[in-house]
Write a protein that binds this DNA or RNA. Structure first.
Lengths: 253, 253
DNA sequence: CTGCGGCGTTGCAGTGTCTGCAACCTTCAT
DNA sequence: ATGAAGGTTGCAGACACTGCAACGCCGCAG
């Protein structure tokens, strides 16, 4: 909508790939060097871009701070956090919290497992939509046409033989998830990792977030993990209760 | 430098404070609603801004993803991480890694303590410059005039009676830190928390990052914490060695 | 049901801001 | 010393951005 801003913002993902010098930025934007310079300067003034010692540009510190603040403003996260901790303390596995936004699902909180085997995942990282249990829950709650649109636009990478193969299978899975009110990922993303997930709902019943417990095969089998389902659902429901204002939170006025 | 981009970027910190509607944004920017709308739209297209269900604007998901990628591109962090983990495993306390950038010091990594007492700090959060041990190390390494300029521009909040009171005291402290090659914060930020920190240097000897171990009084006294200094320094040196390419990293070709 | 007020959105004309150019400067390598 | 490469600046012209005003939408109250 706004050419100048559009160009300036296009610089950010470009720099996210790694540092670049003025010429590279100008080329990839398709603008004159002087133009790129002025855009970078503006970004720099706002701290979004940093000029490292070799004169090349990198993403800047304020970006972290902004992301940080944005995160702290997410009510769900704040409310959910103590519950996630408690769940982790009682079962020992990795616990995730995720939300859906604009065709992406991303982790907004994570509590690490209490044993040395760690999962590779990070707060802020986009989630594999087609296989992750939390993604299934969040997508399953979208209005029908939107769900269909998303499902057909997606790629279906075969992470493992158990990955969701295509849109049809995915939509069927979402339908199932929608009805049963919980979801799993049994080795669909990484062969040896299973997840079980439950939805967190707002006052209007819409799914606002999803949480999951993940554990590798070497620690517990899929069946054993599934025995945690009631606990996961209870936790998710407790969070839903607080989030939608139904459950008064002790300690709050 | 570029008015349009400048205005657009000013929206981000504004939204970081909390969601706002079109009118509020326009007012605070001092522009017409239609102008604000177009800026917001552009930000939206790039995923930096999200329109929540009540039509108000919030910071968007891509911001997390960008911050995430930026962080993963920081070589120091990647190299340091396993060392931090190991240090945490051997001493049990909270371990931080921080860098300096444009008048700010911020945590770029953190390993939580192995006991229930947790510190309030977050990756991406700016650090209290005048008291934190890591900040002292990073500022102490700045060229003299810059160090002085920063010191005089700062506020010196009295978090505790032991907080650095003013620029003079701070500069003296920095000089000391510079000479001894390590730093502490003994209850200067939070009465009951002590830190001991060491610098990580690049090939040219400049301080590129600083790491610290923090622990509350209730767990160990300041004196006990200080006995960890050699271990902290060894860890920092090991990281420096890898970072500057002096130590070949096993497992890497 | 209807009229009102608030808020977001769109088309348009004027102009102020951004663009690309070309010349200049610095740094580094030959 | 000389040249090349990349960064920086001033300028005139073009066009993208701005603010306005009118419109549409929704919720609310009479």
């Amino acid at each position: 909508m706004s050419q100048t801003v559009d160009r300036a913002l296009s610089i950010l993902p470009l720099l996210a790939e790694g540092p670049a010098d003025l010429g590279q930025v100008a080329d990839r934007l398709g603008v004159h060097k002087s133009t790129a310079l002025r855009l970078l300067r503006t970004l720099h003034e706002h701290g979004l871009v940093y000029r490292q010692s070799d004169q090349r540009y990198r993403l800047g510190a304020r970006l972290f701070a902004l992301a940080q603040e944005a995160m702290e403003n997410l009510d769900v996260r704040e409310i959910a956090h103590p519950h996630l901790i408690r769940l982790n303390e009682s079962c020992g596995h990795t616990v995730h919290l995720a939300v859906y936004e604009e065709n992406e699902v991303l982790y907004i909180d994570k509590v690490e497992s209490r044993y040395p085997v760690r999962m590779y995942s990070r707060i802020g990282k986009p989630v594999a939509l087609t296989v992750a249990a939390v993604a299934k829950l969040l997508l399953a709650d979208l209005p029908e046409h939107e769900r269909r649109a998303v499902a057909e636009k997606l790629d279906y990478p075969s992470y493992t033989p158990r990955s969701t193969p295509n849109a049809t299978a995915f939509l069927r899975e979402l339908e199932k998830v929608r009805e049963q009110g919980w979801a799993t990922d049994l080795g669909g993303h990484e062969e040896s990792i299973n997840c079980v997930a439950a939805p967190i709902r707002g006052a209007d019943g819409r799914v606002v977030a999803a949480m999951s417990v993940s554990a590798p095969n070497v620690v517990v089998t899929a069946d054993e993990l599934l025995t945690l389902l009631p606990l996961v659902r209870r936790t998710a429901d407790a969070i839903s209760g607080e989030y939608s204002g139904r459950t008064p939170v002790k300690g709050t006025v």
